[in-house]
Design a protein around this nucleic acid. Sequence first.
DNA 1: GCCCAGGAGTGTG
DNA 2: CACACTCATGGG
Length: 284
Amino acid sequence: MRFETRILPLDLDLTLGCGQTFRWRKHEDGSWQGVLGDQLVRLEQRGQVMIVEAAPDRTYAEEKVREHFRASDDIPAIQRALGKDPILARGMSDVRGLRIVKMDEWECLISFVLATYANIPRITKMIETLADRYGEELAEGVHSFPMHRRLSKATRPELARCGLGYRAKYVRELSARLDDDAIEGLKKLRYENLRNELKGLPGVGDKVADCVSLFGFGRLEAFPIDVWMERALARLYRQKGSYAKLRAFAGERFGPYAGYAQEYLYYNERVRASRGACGFSEER
DNA sequence: GCCCAGGAGTGTG
DNA sequence: CACACTCATGGG
């Protein structure tokens, strides 16, 4: 079934191509294919409208898509708030359609734990292999991300054979420590407590805890810091130091929408910098 | 073949 | 708290 929905502003290429998610593929015709829960979805942007192709229930699919792109985020308001920062203000109009996505919590946790010490192609491969072997087949060759119930039955050697390496142990331990109820419990926590709980889990350090808080649990105040963000903070804000120090700086400077600030700066540093362009620039 | 990856855990100074 | 070392593999 095919229908239209509007989420504004939204730039699919920016949002799905910037590395915050791992399972969206761009087809030659420019459309994007992905899996949201048990929904296989194909999206096509035509100016202000987005064509959604999914089956079989329109209401359910539309709900999933709107949730994933955080349709209720008031981007103009967020940009007005972040625009008080003169460095962000300079380049923000170019990334108006870059939205934070909302992933399934369990999928997000496993994905970012797998992402440690691996490059994007490999991360993608690990996740696809897990989906192929433990997820439900939704269409020819397309599988859902495995639910906890199923993944927790996989043994460590089996997981290791999915190319996870030492990460197999973390996936096993996460399966043992968490279940659907535990995740429901985590959803109720405020960010600081959620972050601490996540950091207590095997394979979860500062960076992964913040990625999962932001992209999985939707906490917009989270500000994940990886090597790209370290560069951005050093270059634009002259900030260097430990994770705790940089995180404190970001919290103070960007406040409740720090996650969006991170997404903008990350994109700018990683994608635009590679093309030699710099939308954001330091103050003189 | 060689290099190194969106870090985390553990031990030491 | 700041570093050093290891972790296990596969994509480029």
